[in-house]
Simulated scan of single mutants.
Amino acid sequence: MSPRGDKRAQLLAKAVDDLAEHGIADLSLAPMAERLGTSKRMLIYYFGSRDALIAEAIAASRPDVSDLFHDVRDTADLEKAAWVLWEAITRGRQRRPIRILFQVLSLAPTQPERYAALAADAVRAMVEPLVPVYRALGFGELEARSRASLLISGLRGLCQDRIVTGDDERIEAAADVLIRAAAAGENRKS
């Protein structure tokens, strides 16, 4: 990697941490740059704009669903992979960065011109890679898309509930129910 690429990657990693801690709603690049030990000019040089930086931070911080689910051959594998995803967003390396996604999803309905496309892309980037997994398990197109949405959006919602309420026992039990439901059932062709 070039020195510019190294510096950019380092700034992006720091930006992800900063956004997870300080949020995006009132994000101004000058204070962020100061916290990151750089300048607003350098953030613009490396990322182009505030919105581009946020988009890259979301992309860099979300779990790689394709990678997590690529070895799924049956419903037992699907459950295991779903638990790996759940662990990543609740206790693992995605635990803090997923807060950025929650912020974008929360802002999209009230500031659609700024966040709607970004939020929709983030959701698609996590749901779409799971659709072929469900198809390979014998589910028809609509059922595959529905189950992929159920699993990803359900886990994301439970994770947010866990952060907000701190009710770990209830949420862990709900995650178990959700994962089993998303992996089980009849294979209906749609």
Rank of each mutant, 00 (worst) to 15 (best):
R96K: 15
R156Y: 13
Y45C: 06
A148S: 14
R41P: 03
R188W: 14
D168L: 02
V164T: 14
D71Q: 15
Y46L: 12
P31R: 07
R145C: 08
V72E: 00
R96D: 14
H70G: 03
L68E: 05
R73V: 14
R50F: 11
G37H: 08
P63A: 02
E128C: 02
R91I: 04
H70S: 15
R62L: 12
K189D: 05
V72N: 00
R73A: 15
I171Q: 05
G48C: 07
A20D: 06
A15I: 09
M42A: 15
R188I: 13
D121R: 10
V123A: 08
E143L: 03
P132H: 10
A108D: 13
D77H: 01
L11W: 10
F102H: 08
R62S: 03
R135G: 08
P97F: 06
A52Y: 08
R156H: 12
L43M: 13
L78F: 09
S66Y: 05
R114D: 10
S49P: 04
Y115S: 05
A52I: 05
E56M: 14
R135Q: 13
P109V: 11
R180D: 13
L19C: 04
D64T: 05
Y134M: 02
A119E: 02
K189H: 14
D176R: 14
R91F: 06
G185Y: 12
L12W: 07
E113W: 00
L107R: 04
D77S: 12
K189I: 13
D18E: 10
A136L: 11
A88F: 06
V84F: 06
P63I: 02
P132Q: 12
R35K: 13
G48E: 01
L142G: 11
H22G: 04
Q111V: 03
I58V: 03
A59I: 01
R93W: 10
R114L: 10
M1W: 10
R35V: 07
G48S: 09
D74K: 01
Q103F: 00
K14E: 06
